[in-house]
Amino acid sequence: MSEQTPTPPEQGTALRRGWTTGACATAATKAAFTALMSGHFPDPVQVTLPKNRTPAFSLAVQEQGDGTAMAGIIKDAGDDPDVTHGALIRAKVRLGAPGSGVTFAAGEGVGMVTRAGLPIPAGEPAINPSPRAMIQQAVGEIAAQFNVPGDVEVEISVPRGAEIAIETLNPRLGIVGGLSILGTTGVVIPFSCSAWIHSIQRGIDVARAAGLPHVAGSTGRTSEKAVQAHHGLPEEALIDMGDFIGGMLKYLRTHPVPRITVAGGMAKITKLSQGFMDVHSRRGQADLGQLADLAATAGADETCQERIRQSNTVAEAFDHARAADVPIGDAVARAALHFALHLIDPQQSQLEILVFDRSGHLVGEATSAP
Results as ranks from 00 to 15, higher is better:
K92V: 11
A143H: 07
G96H: 06
A91E: 10
P81H: 06
A106C: 07
P98M: 06
T54W: 01
G67V: 04
A126P: 04
V102D: 08
I89A: 05
T54P: 01
S130Q: 09
P44N: 10
T54D: 06
G111A: 11
G72F: 09
S100C: 14
E153W: 01
M70C: 14
P119I: 00
Q46R: 15
A60Q: 14
V158N: 09
L95A: 11
A105R: 15
V158Y: 01
K75I: 03
A71H: 03
S58T: 14
M134G: 00
E141C: 07
G86F: 06
F146M: 03
V102G: 08
P131V: 01
M134E: 00
T84L: 13
G117Q: 03
E63H: 11
A122V: 02
P125E: 11
V61D: 11
G72R: 07
A60L: 10
S58F: 12
G111V: 10
I127R: 07
A133Y: 00
A106S: 14
R94T: 08
T103K: 13
N147T: 13
F57K: 10
E153N: 11
R53F: 09
Q46L: 02
D79I: 09
F104S: 00
Q46Y: 01
P81W: 08
R90Y: 01
R94W: 10
A56V: 07
A60N: 08
E141K: 02
I73T: 09
G65M: 05
T103I: 12
G140K: 00
G109S: 05
A87I: 04
K75G: 04
I156E: 06
L49G: 12
V110H: 05
A97F: 03
P121T: 01
A56F: 05
G101E: 11
P44M: 05
V45N: 10
V110L: 03
G140M: 00
Q145C: 08
A71V: 13
Q137D: 13
M134L: 07
S58D: 15
I156C: 06
M134S: 01
